[in-house]
Write a protein that binds this DNA or RNA. Sequence first.
DNA 1: TGTACATCAGTGAACGCGCGTTCACTGATGTAC
DNA 2: TGTACATCAGTGAACGCGCGTTCACTGATGTAC
Lengths: 221, 221
Amino acid sequence: LIRENARSPIGEEGTRESRKQRTHQALLDAALELMGGDESFSSLSLREVTRVAGIVPTAFYRHFRDMEELGLQLVDECFRTLRQMIRAVRAGPLPSEHIIRSSAEILVRHVHQNRRHFQFIARERYGGVAALRHAIRREIRLFVSELATDLSRFPYLNRWSTEDLMMLAQLMVGAMVNTVEDVLSLPPQRPEEEQEIIRVAEKQLRLIALAAPQWRSARST
Amino acid sequence: LIRENARSPIGEEGTRESRKQRTHQALLDAALELMGGDESFSSLSLREVTRVAGIVPTAFYRHFRDMEELGLQLVDECFRTLRQMIRAVRAGPLPSEHIIRSSAEILVRHVHQNRRHFQFIARERYGGVAALRHAIRREIRLFVSELATDLSRFPYLNRWSTEDLMMLAQLMVGAMVNTVEDVLSLPPQRPEEEQEIIRVAEKQLRLIALAAPQWRSARST
DNA sequence: TGTACATCAGTGAACGCGCGTTCACTGATGTAC
DNA sequence: TGTACATCAGTGAACGCGCGTTCACTGATGTAC
């Protein structure tokens, strides 16, 4: 009721451009925050988002054409987080003995540090907005390809066909995605149950790894 | 504009009770039909659903307390379909040589015959309505347990611990769910691409099966 | 079989509300000289 | 450095619309006698 600041509601430091960027980010953050509750993206309203971001509904259009454009930028942001995680895994130890355990640890740490990003991807992967589904599918396909390339450096796997490496990468990514979704749907602060989920995920990856030397793949391409 | 029928809009044959049941089903069908498009359950409106079902909005309350109750009944209906599929798989051939291929065929046939049911489960598994998410999780857990029991009858696997059988069943169900979601997100009438997805899924199951004899599981319980 | 009454699935008017989008605006920031 | 003007992020009133829910109702179906 009292107008505290006729300028930017986000803060008045910086140039006009940098304040605009801050509002822009505040809108993205507001959408993610609202989805932390019990809403999917398609049931978010433009007015809710601006309310949480602290601007008037009409100012939304200074930043996005519509909610779908905001959603697509969220997909980008979330997968930037995911790629950071992959870089952390790649920087890890080479010995394959511990690679499964350390990868699982990095995965879980990143899920906790970026809970909302992972939640967004999980919820919209098969959600109601086609444009978001397609953007997420494309990113996951990319991720599978990269993993397939990484896998080709392992013993046994270096003789596999590209097609079989993709099949294997898909299986592993699928198991990881399911694990992330299990961790996310756990009530917060349940370390024992979370450890159980992680233990199962590690076993699944070890089981898959056991099969690799047995598989007969015709090298192609 | 012309009132054709002052009685039930669904049809006037049968007793009052049976006509009520038909309207009830029409509401469930309407919700599924609307979700075939680009909407998730949480963005469906009561009025949309009654419009498609052919009744007035206020009559909705003769059948459900609110949309959530309708959603929960949809979960029930969809998993009834899924259990029919499982029964079909169980009735199939025993020889493990062909069991993967025949199971995959049954899966794909059922996905096409009950596209909307599978789509509903996929879309709401991590969707915006908590009550539906929980109901679906519970049903999938049940499904995993049953598969674990079935698996315990196979060679090698009959010596595994319950925990490891659950881990294996989870991995297989996860791969199946991902396959179903891939098939569903394919544009219709793409038999070659669909065959490719199925071929990958079969390979994944065969890979997992290869690992079974190598796995060291301490029998527990 | 016929009559009188109860039941209840579906109707239609009405309500207050939050929505997305339009529009003319304000006033601090940025730029040209 | 100072001035005059352009830019543009954010404002606030207004709009028409579809929403969920309430209420009193209608009239065919079901039941008791």
